[in-house]
């Protein structure tokens, strides 16, 4: 790996179904077949009921910002071209409150808010890894971001 490559997830037996789904542009969350509770991080046994039976439930991809941080100084050169950027904990609709870390994209950073409604999208990072990202449901924000970006990179 070059010095400036970003560190990508290394899927293992527990996490591979999540990343495989992302590659197909599907957002899936692990769910217990017995008690139906969702869980994150993924794992082989339900912490609530102990069942080892689970499935990967496809979810709507809608969610809202639970919290977020705006990275204004890149700690790693791989992200130097990205700053400033926002990473949120996205509380996913229909999952009983699962919160997924992901970039907020297509949004002016001064418009990012806790509680803001988001919708999932996908960005290809490598042959193996596609990352979930989230953009505002409010298309006016996406339009503003598009125009700002156009001004910077005509």
């Amino acid at each position: 790996m070059s010095a400036t490559a970003r560190s990508l997830p290394r899927p293992d037996a527990d996490t591979r179904p999540f990343w495989d789904a992302c590659r197909r542009h599907e957002l899936r969350v692990q769910q217990c077949r017995a008690c139906e509770s969702f869980r994150f991080y993924p794992g082989p046994i339900c912490p609530s009921c102990g069942s080892t039976a689970n499935l990967w439930q496809r979810v709507s991809g809608r969610g809202e910002v639970y919290s977020y941080v705006v990275v204004r100084r890149a700690a790693h050169p791989a992200f130097a071209g990205d700053v400033p950027y926002a990473v949120a904990l996205v509380e996913l609709e229909g999952t009983g409150g699962i919160r997924l870390p992901a970039r907020i994209v297509d949004c002016p950073l001064d418009q990012a808010r806790i509680g803001m409604a988001l919708d999932v999208g996908f960005e290809t990072a490598s042959n193996e890894i596609t990352l979930p990202v989230f953009r505002p449901v409010d298309v006016r924000l996406a339009d503003t971001a598009f125009m700002l970006n156009l001004r910077r990179n005509p």
Partner: peptide
């Protein structure tokens, strides 16, 4: 082993 959920998104510190 789960750090990749964050680091790939640009959360490394």
């Amino acid at each position: 082993p789960f750090a990749g959920f964050f680091s790939a998104q640009g959360m490394t510190t």
